[in-house]
Design a protein around this nucleic acid. Structure first.
Lengths: 163, 163
DNA sequence: TGGTTCTTTATGGGCGTCAATGGATTCTTA
DNA sequence: TAAGAATCCATTGACGCCCATAAAGAACCA
């Protein structure tokens, strides 16, 4: 497996260090680890997005689709690249979160790492719980669509009580 | 045979370990076992859903249709990937249930494994019995309707209590 | 068919390794 | 030289891995 999956919560110590969950580190290494992770404020949430080389390439890909010197490209470049920080991972698998990033996500005592496949996010644990609740509600809404389309996943109507 | 069928109840030991029923393990191995099972809280029941690679691919399939970096994708990712835990299976066919998952399903002393074809669920035995009872009642209702229609009267002793 | 042996499973426990965390020490650079 | 940053070291607790036991089931043989 080479995707970020699952959620973990780790502490920030007095120096602002946080351990990256070991499973995520494993993914990063497989992903062509170049000494650090790419990290930037999420565009639409009080959280940080982060990932390895694959994520960087995806961003490149997005920009490649837009014409050079277009307003759109400039804006996106700034939005995407402008706030990107490369955070180096120390010998013990920890990163230091710079003040700016920490502020955006309102991170203080601890951080929740959320695997999202190609990338992962870092959340203030409380806020993440809220978000998770909302996301679940949304999935419920979409369940009918899933069921109608690509086959059944997740909860199914019969509640498992069959024999 | 390559689907999860039947129900089994196993104990949780002092370390939080549970044996996965051997028949389920056999299915998992055939399913392209990659070192662990995918497990997440059921969206609409106090239970856990779990499965192997096949289940994981279904989740990927759901997300594959959505554009990168859309709000929608992020939200679904949170609910789908973010809630998923990969539980590794030890040499004796056991998994450890993390606190969060255990809470969702209210699991304490033992777990009932319920085969649902592509995946299986884990229930607190008492709760599962309730569900099963309710389901049976429904089945009975249906039977009465059938019986009234076709002449044959229900109400015999076995009450559909087979498995 | 009845009894016996062998295999598989579930379950409990011990132990070594690794990850997370906190603190100390060295290195850089202003 | 002092402040901040990066590296190294130490502790603790969790987790993976191995073995032991017992019960249940299957296969086997008389």
């Amino acid at each position: 497996m080479d995707r970020f999956v699952s959620t973990y919560t780790n502490k920030i110590d007095a120096k602002g260090r946080v351990s990256i969950p070991a499973p995520f580190r494993a993914v990063l290494e497989r992903d062509g680890y170049a000494g650090g992770i790419y990290c930037y404020p999420s565009l639409d949430a009080p959280a940080l997005d982060a990932g390895g080389e694959r994520l960087a390439k995806k961003i490149d890909g997005l920009l490649a689709g837009l014409p050079d010197y277009s307003n759109e490209r400039d804006e996106l470049s700034v939005a995407l690249y402008g706030d990107v920080q490369i955070l180096s991972i120390d010998g013990d698998g920890r990163i230091v979160l710079p003040e700016g990033l920490r502020q955006h996500a309102d991170l203080q005592g601890s951080v929740t790492f959320v695997g999202l496949g190609d990338k992962f996010q870092m959340w203030e644990p409380g806020r993440f719980e809220e978000r998770r609740g909302a996301a679940r509600a949304k999935v419920q809404d979409h369940r009918k669509l899933f069921a109608a389309g690509s086959g059944r996943l997740g909860g199914d109507g019969d509640e498992g009580a069959r024999e």
